[in-house]
Simulated assay, not measured.
Amino acid sequence: MTNTTPAQQLIGNFSPKMVELTDGVVFGDIWERPELSKRDRSLVTVAVLIAGGHTEQLPGHIQRALDNGVSREEIVETITHLAFYAGWPRAMSAIAVAKDVLGEHA
């Protein structure tokens, strides 16, 4: 059994260059730079995804944030804070995603 990256699982052989760039540049270089902790990078990434309305990318990055030491409360507070800067609809969409990732179904 071979270890596959999330990008390989998501894209497979459909776009090998995107897998290469995702694994090598984004997660192999950018996420490994020492100037920001992975925890801080996770908070920034979650915030930008919410602000941009990119909820399809949120589940994986919320889980990554949890794995990088961001608490459930910090994720919820980040979304609440962004409601006033990124827009209420985007925050409400992000809350729905966060509830699912955190296992808090209605």
Rank of each mutant, 00 (worst) to 15 (best):
L49H: 06
P89Y: 06
T2F: 06
P89E: 07
V101W: 05
K38E: 09
F27M: 05
K17F: 12
E77H: 05
W88K: 00
L58T: 08
P6Y: 01
T22F: 01
Q63D: 12
V97R: 05
N13F: 03
V44M: 14
G24T: 12
S37Q: 02
S15E: 14
R41Y: 07
V97A: 10
M1W: 05
R33L: 10
V46N: 05
V44N: 02
V70S: 13
E77Q: 13
Q9E: 14
E74R: 00
L82V: 08
L43F: 10
V26H: 09
L49S: 03
D23K: 00
I95W: 10
A83T: 07
Q57K: 03
V25S: 01
S71P: 03
G53K: 05
A47M: 01
T2L: 09
L43W: 08
A91L: 10
T80H: 08
G60T: 09
A86M: 06
H81S: 08
H81R: 08
H105M: 01
T45S: 14
I30E: 11
N13Q: 14
G103L: 05
V48E: 11
D67L: 06
H61G: 02
G52H: 08
R64V: 06
S15C: 06
D40L: 07
E77F: 03
D23A: 02
V44W: 09
T55Y: 07
P6F: 01
L58S: 06
R64S: 12
A96T: 15
S37H: 02
S93A: 11
I75F: 06
H81P: 02
I11Y: 11
G12E: 14
W31S: 04
T2R: 11
Q57R: 08
E35W: 12
H54N: 02
A106H: 14
A94S: 15
G69Y: 13
K99F: 00
R39G: 11
G24Q: 13
A106S: 14
G28F: 04
T78H: 04
I62T: 06
L43A: 03
L10N: 13
A51Y: 05
R72L: 04
P59W: 12
T55D: 05
Q57P: 01
Q63K: 12
P34H: 01
Q9T: 11
I30R: 05
D100L: 04
T80G: 02
A96C: 06
A91S: 15
S71L: 06
P59H: 05
A65S: 11
S93C: 00
M92A: 15
S71Q: 09
G53Y: 03
R72G: 00
G53E: 13
L49P: 11
